[in-house]
């Protein structure tokens, strides 16, 4: 069962990353470990941050291949 749950998590993470949304849990883990003093973004804020990054103002990202 644990393995099945792991595979399902991979599929979910994979599908979300395909549309440019990284793992929120990984972000939380990182923030707790390295920046415990800072308030992490909520899941919704994180989601919007990722969407902006993908169709970025920097002119990068967003472009899919031909």
């Amino acid at each position: 069962m644990a393995e099945l749950a792991h595979v399902l998590k991979l599929v979910r993470d994979g599908a979300r990353l395909m549309v440019g949304v990284q793992s929120y849990e990984a972000y939380l883990t990182h923030m707790r470990a390295h920046h415990p003093d800072r308030e992490p973004m909520t899941e919704v804020e994180f989601f919007e941050n990722r969407m902006k990054a993908q169709y970025g103002e920097a002119g990068k990202g967003g472009f899919r291949c031909c």
Partner: peptide
């Protein structure tokens, strides 16, 4: 945690 994230290779 945002742009630079170590990610599972299959994902």
């Amino acid at each position: 945690g945002l742009d630079y994230v170590p990610t599972n290779k299959y994902v």
